[in-house]
Design a protein around this nucleic acid. Structure first.
Ligand SMILES: [Mn+2]
Ligand SMILES: [Mn+2]
Ligand SMILES: [Mn+2]
Ligand SMILES: [Mn+2]
Lengths: 227, 227
DNA sequence: ATTAATTTTTAGATTAATCTAAAAATTAAT
DNA sequence: ATTAATTTTTAGATTAATCTAAAAATTAAT
């Protein structure tokens, strides 16, 4: 009974899922246009179609929210995206900064049989190469509490569990600094003027990070547990 | 400099490559329409576009042939299709009759880096699960001499090296008969009336095959060697 | 509470891919 | 060599996805 979406429709649904703060918060036309690199007029049109298909709730000038059906589709796409990323990194030796673009294509391959077998082949991973949780076949995934490194204050500590952004330049920069998932860190000092910070690693070495970078790194008290 | 083709364009180029007998022989509008499950009028339109892009040579009412650029593209797509089929069968435990449809999607994923790494990951296989040769990264592949089982006469023998068709029902039927690639066979008798035949296997057991099935099985004197 | 700025929608076009129906060209049959 | 049958193309429409320009609605600023 679940009608198959076009590639474009899938990208819209996924973008809405990713942009919104909470499941209830509305996503604006402009933010979608921005995220999908298209024009607001185009978004307005597509929104009507998705609304007609009952994938989103839409009130003119008030933005959109995902319906249950829409969320389900979004989670499916994200599951595929992240599983393919694991495959690319773990089995084809890609670096974590090289896989996003390819996964953007692979996430649209239609075959639940395929994705479930891939999941098994990969050993049912619970996080992708960027620390993001991978939904299981039922679409369930649990996101442990985490916050941005930039929100931490002096002497707080925690573990790096993810990056907010998959921009290649950022990921390469983190590589250069030897910052990776699972790393234990402690905030030594936060600069009042520009919010840059010094952090201490487990081996007692210290690192200097700009606010721009610190605001892309997700920290948790302990490693997040997923379904 | 190589402009990227749309999914539809890729399917046309591949169909032309697969339908033609020799690189020079013309492919008709109707045969393309038939193969692509579309209407002749649609094919006429698309043909103009591909011709304009210099991927095919086209003369009105005379059918089309692939240009060098077109052939190159076709071979790339076929390479991807077959490598993905190997992945699906060898690593995700799909049966040979289950992979074609999924590979039809995967063959359009754009990333030569991806496909070359996949090739390495798979151990640079030379044939796909159906016995078809896999072009290498330069697009070269060598097709050893082979003919249809239905073209063989009494007492001729050879090795099954491929199937012409990837229809699930055919492949499942062959499975049931225990007919697989690499099998040594000998033609015992050909029925004059319906061209059905009895073949003898290495273990001296015999099998009855209709002409319809025999005309789908490719036989070679020895296993084909590929680049 | 008006006015100004911003956001969103509508109107009208365009392109790729598709279709049906009819016309034109080619090929096969008498 | 005509006529008939078949194949291919053209003409005219449609749908999804996109755009620019202008209108309408909402939100922010005085
Ligand atoms: Mn990604
Ligand atoms: Mn990721
Ligand atoms: Mn296939
Ligand atoms: Mn195959």
């Amino acid at each position: 009974m679940e009608k198959s979406l076009s590639l474009t429709e899938e990208n819209y649904i996924k973008a809405i899922f990713q942009i919104r703060r909470t499941p209830e918060s509305n996503v604006s036309t402009n933010s979608l246009a921005n995220s999908l690199q298209t024009k607001p007029a185009t978004v307005s049109d597509m929104i009507k179609r998705l609304s007609h298909k009952k994938l989103i709730f839409y009130e003119k000038y008030k933005g959109v929210t995902l319906s249950a059906a829409g969320s389900k589709q979004a989670i499916k796409i994200i599951r595929k995206h992240r599983l393919w990323e694991v495959f690319l990194v773990n089995h084809l030796n890609f670096k974590w900064d090289q896989v996003h673009e390819i996964a953007e294509q692979l996430e649209h391959i239609k075959s639940s049989e395929l994705i479930n077998r891939l999941d098994d082949f990969l050993g049912n991973p619970t996080t992708d190469p960027h620390g993001d949780p991978i939904p299981n076949a039922n679409g369930q995934f649990q996101l442990g509490p985490s916050k941005l490194l930039s929100e931490m204050t002096s002497n707080e500590n925690g573990i790096i569990v993810g990056v907010k952004n998959e921009n290649s330049l950022l990921l390469q920069h983190l590589d250069k600094l030897n910052i990776h998932l699972g790393l234990n860190i402690k905030v030594k000092e936060v600069n009042d003027f520009d919010q840059s910070m010094q952090i201490k690693l487990a081996d007692s070495s210290t690192l200097f990070l700009s606010e721009k970078i610190a605001s892309q790194i997700l920290i948790a008290k302990k490693l997040r547990s997923y379904l």
